[in-house]
Design a protein around this nucleic acid. Sequence first.
DNA 1: AAAATATAGTTAAGCGTTTAACGTATAAGG
DNA 2: CCTTATACGTTAAACGCTTAACTATATTTT
Lengths: 348, 348
Amino acid sequence: MPYATLADIAKRANKSIATVSRVLNDKADEGIRISEETKQQILTFAKELNYRPNFLARHLVQKDSRVIGLLIPDIMQIFFNEICYYLSRKLNESGYDILLAHSYEDPEPERKAIEMILSRRVNGIVVAPAKGQHNLELLEDIRSRNIPLILLDRYFIDKIFYSVTSDDVQGSYRLVSHLIDQGARNILFLCGDRETSVTIERIAGYRKAFLEQKIPVEERLFLESGFFQKDGYKITRRLIADGALKGVEAIMGVNDEIALGVLEALWEEGVKVPQDILVAGYGDERYSKYLRVPLTSVQQQTSVLAEHTYRLLMKLIEKKKIPKINTKVSCQLIVRESTVRERQGGAA
Amino acid sequence: MPYATLADIAKRANKSIATVSRVLNDKADEGIRISEETKQQILTFAKELNYRPNFLARHLVQKDSRVIGLLIPDIMQIFFNEICYYLSRKLNESGYDILLAHSYEDPEPERKAIEMILSRRVNGIVVAPAKGQHNLELLEDIRSRNIPLILLDRYFIDKIFYSVTSDDVQGSYRLVSHLIDQGARNILFLCGDRETSVTIERIAGYRKAFLEQKIPVEERLFLESGFFQKDGYKITRRLIADGALKGVEAIMGVNDEIALGVLEALWEEGVKVPQDILVAGYGDERYSKYLRVPLTSVQQQTSVLAEHTYRLLMKLIEKKKIPKINTKVSCQLIVRESTVRERQGGAA
DNA sequence: AAAATATAGTTAAGCGTTTAACGTATAAGG
DNA sequence: CCTTATACGTTAAACGCTTAACTATATTTT
């Protein structure tokens, strides 16, 4: 047997299992007293046998597993990577461990992951849903059972969940306003997935900026993309090949990875950024400042998002009443070379 | 109660708990037969009550938790991020879930994380140890208890563990040889941590390259750094301020993040790369090709590393005898502008 | 001397499963 | 009519732990 049990220690020490349990948990509570002598003995035997508590057994009786399920689309998306880091850090400090699950942006693996997380009787669940609007009933079921659940970054429009998200309407509005300022009117948005809340909000922000300038919005400029560099690359190559980039003055990506793919494709074709076309990302990754052309982006405070998620989660676990359902974190526009048109030059 | 139990279903269906368990696990094995009727009934009630098995209870009796503990220094290090992704992917396919833990490059959190992982009775553990050589006895204890354990990327010199690592001697050798080729003799290595196996190997590769050219190695050129951009930045600023970069013809970082920090500091001071100094990274991140000066780096096949780790882990779990203790994955030098000196120019 | 209190524990139930070892009731075979 | 086989289960122990309720002995108080 690789693991010693309380019974093993009890046998060695000639004491009952209950006593051993109490000593090891330092629970001399409510009138139960244990002599210093047996205490030391038990501790010695525990060390000797290399005793490690079995959390499965412990948490079966205490309804508290001290685990949080974190379900994200994909940890390779840097945004989720950072969220995972900051959230882990916070949770670790409070003694929670993390069960990490991936949906791979796909509803079925997501469903399975949720079921798995529930079966492991976690104390709480943080979900950044897969793109689209799937597994809604399942998540609603969780909520209705009062299992602490927080939606992160992405949420379900008009459905009631605790959520922590970026203010994407605002971020997008600021970015698009800036691009309009730079003279762009045809702004292509490689928008990830149109049914995902993040994109819906960003498109709303986009529209808002255009409305304010009283310029009509062309629907065809919203193009679905994936979330990775190669997606941005492929789509841009295709657009160039189709001549679909004629008249487009700016391209914005749903994240910096996509923007990087766009840049790659443009450079390959000899299209100059920002002279010929403006390019912006979203998320402001660590490297974006240092690209061949420094990339304009919208900074999302992942550490702040994680912090809010953490605090909300702790309150839910403590069964506190929380009035505020949705927390929105604002973001900041970072303008760099990739979207600044020098007024003298500029061939389309 | 948020969760239904087997007993709840049994009561509704007027059957015993054992029968319910058998139906839900589809175990009509060894002569135990259950009528189609009760089967359907039980399944209906299970759905109705939204039954979700309690893995804590299940795995208490079956000694198999279907969880793998993954302990890494820091998921923000892109290398570990990618490893985590590919390994998760593989493990998910085989029905394993992931308990993610961070050491933050610190021995004490690492120790706690290991204890936690063990207490959760995982089926296996993958550890990328924190820098230095800590918690050796603890890990040896795990190994001696026949708990499947694999060391990833970093290992303990001369100690016997199953491990999957990059061939860092080779990678470093190739990189340094290339730099020597480019005329560099004073090659500064911001090497992370000198007691970590990765660095020890890289320094060995460095020496090998110099030995081959019969050039003596200057010990002072190995400088410890952290693993992040800001670390590379700070150290370079200090070196510049101290005038310590005089005569240095190339800087190599322990990873691309460090190299990025180096580049940042150099650019701020108006030092030109590669004209004034060569800079190389390690790991070949997605963005490194697209930097202001495309970065020379050594490609590490994280997906291959993950694949090997996965396969080895599965074998260990199945208690197969494995002859090969250490698996080394080779890596490839990617030469880009940041280390290619144009022969005509070149001010030191 | 009896009662109360303090000290140092023990017993046993229960958490939700799995699973080996046992029932029953009915039908078929001899 | 008795035996055997078949179909369809049930009982109960066990996994390792926590914890409410109890016990036994010694010491102090009244």
